[in-house]
Design a protein around this nucleic acid. Structure first.
Lengths: 343, 343
DNA sequence: TCATAAAATTTACGCGCGCAAACATTAAGA
DNA sequence: TCTTAATGTTTGCGCGCGTAAATTTTATGA
């Protein structure tokens, strides 16, 4: 850094020997200026490390480079990983991701959208809470800001939806469980917060009927996002009540399964697929921790690389084209069976 | 919403019947205007839902209301929970938190600080990666922006540090393990990324010597933040090598312990503190998942409510006073023993 | 009712930049 | 060397708001 301080673009234009409008062009797209002037600018940049004032830039640009990313619960490593993936894609595309977590609460979800509104994002990627979401306020938001939903669908909201094909993925694991042992019961919350849970329920029922088995639902009480806790508490109750008419349990998601595994362990019930085991437990999602449960958890992985990539692609194309999508599309990706020790 | 559209503060001043400078005063502090005019403004606000342009505001304010929050890895639920707590405290104080994760990489950490710089935050709370952190660049940042470190310390960087008293907490669990069974070996990474790991190592050695036992370190290879994976892989190796001279293992953190538990299970080694068990395993941190391992993990909890509250308090007082702290202070909080099934 | 302090208004400037129009310069090919 | 398109420069406006100074209005209490 030499001599005088560079306070603004005009100062920087002076020291670099290039006019301010050209400097402005450079910062909006380095490719848009001639090679020789680009070199001059970047040489000056090394000496003076000037950067445009982001507030002045955003005040004057027709559109910001911000893309909002709202997930239901960052405390859940599953969403933390998705968020990380999506953030990377957004940065790669030259945009600025803003990550917000709704912490499982609909009010926080709306608050997140409100603070995004203040930032005038070019677009928003929203993984909504689901059933608890305040539809009307979200609808109002999606009217103002181009929004793509992912993970959990809210009917007709947003420009598009990308998620998992629960029907396929649950069918996959029900098939596997049935052909490798007793048909599973379905262990879930009575009133889940997540729309995927309802789809998984009906997918389970459909798969069982297709295979000629009687579907059996074990629906337990429990609110909120502390699934492990619920799986542990209610699972323990179920295991000790003699309520279980089969030796195979399919959980609505991995986090419930993790709780149930813990409860089985405490009750001295051996879980696994080998002969000595008394119980098989399977989950859904391929949660980051499911490899390290005891035994490791057999589950179905979601293709969230595809979900992430498609969601980002969709919002970027809307932004660059400047037009809202004419017909809302829902795209579902298939899951893959992940065989481990628990079933 | 009635009639014309409110585009800016001047429009809003017109419809509310109050002058623009007074409106401006109101938004910067609603208490600073007379009750009667405040009422007028808020009535108009309900009709027209105007909000000041955040970019124009921040361009002109001497200081923004932004507070940056950088954590090493949001994928780790431990940090996700801390982040959530801190975010809440920042919002309560009327500031705007900006959460960034370094994803375990020093380059990302610097990139995070760079993008924070662009936002001109009033202050930053930084939980650094530790050993991998690029000290010089962080030092440069802390010179420009008031920064408080927490969780992991970097010598002399930032205005203050708040963290856990590893010496006390490790001493606590070593004491417990020694009086309830065989003295523990210490299971850790050979070259940990986190400075806390080094403190825990020396705390373990000190505690063992104090109790008249020979310290034993098992130091395994492994890079990055995938602690469960390392604990599983290397732990399995150690368990099957006959290298273990005691039946008690204290892990440097819970995530390693989770991996080790999984490895023990796979090897058919019964873990627990009752008579039938062959191995005791303890961790450190009280990770959110440690309640649901099999068996549940005995560990030491960090007082991160205190760490969060103190860190936020420190940065807020610096912001409001406008002065940097004269002498850097390091404050450590005590951990608590969390007895569960594994040891 | 009046003096006085507190609050609001009027007026005006500046923040740092995007953007557009008119004009000047440069690079590339015939 | 000349033409032409591409690229830069000059000039100037406007974005929406913070903030300051001078002035006027309002509230408060004796």
């Amino acid at each position: 850094m030499t001599g005088q301080k560079i306070k603004n673009m005009e100062d920087f234009a002076a020291v670099s020997g290039i006019s301010r409008p050209t400097i402005s062009k450079y910062f909006n797209d380095p490719e848009s200026v001639r090679q020789s002037t680009r070199k001059k600018i970047e040489e000056a940049l090394e000496k003076h490390n000037y950067r445009p004032n982001i507030y002045a830039v955003n005040q004057n640009r027709r559109q910001t480079k911000n893309i909002g990313l709202v997930v239901p619960n960052l405390t859940d490593p599953f969403f933390a990983e998705i968020a990380r993936t999506i953030e990377g894609l957004i940065v790669e595309a030259g945009f600025n991701p803003l990550l917000l977590s709704s912490h499982g609460g609909p009010d926080q979800e709306i608050a997140n959208l409100d603070s995004l509104r203040a930032i005038k994002p070019a677009g928003v990627l929203l993984a909504p809470l689901g059933r608890a979401s305040l539809d009307k306020q979200i609808a109002e938001f999606t009217r103002e800001v181009p929004t793509v939903l992912f993970d959990a669908n809210l009917e007709d909201l947003g420009e598009a939806f990308f998620g998992s094909d629960n029907h396929q993925s649950v069918g996959l694991i029900v098939d596997y469980l049935c052909r490798s042992g007793e048909p599973p019961v379905f262990f879930e919350l009575k009133t889940p917060i997540n729309p995927n849970a309802y789809k998984r329920r009906s997918a389970y029922i459909a798969a069982m009927e297709r295979l000629g088995h009687e579907p059996q639902l074990i629906q337990v009480d429990g609110q909120g996002w502390n699934f492990e806790e619920i799986g542990f508490r209610e699972g323990g109750r179920v295991l000790n009540s003699g309520q279980l008419l089969t030796n195979t349990v399919l959980c609505s998601n991995d986090r419930i399964a993790i709780g149930l595994l813990s409860a089985a362990f405490e009750s001295g019930i051996k879980v696994g697929r080998d002969d000595g085991a008394a119980l098989r437990i399977a989950g859904h999602d391929d949660h980051p921790f499911s490899r390290f449960t005891c035994p490791s958890l057999t589950t179905v992985s979601q293709d969230y690389d595809a979900i992430s990539a498609s969601s980002v692609e969709a919002i970027l194309s809307m932004i660059s084209s400047g037009v809202r999508i004419e017909a809302r599309k829902e795209t579902l990706f298939e899951g893959k069976l992940v065989m481990r020790g628990s079933a």
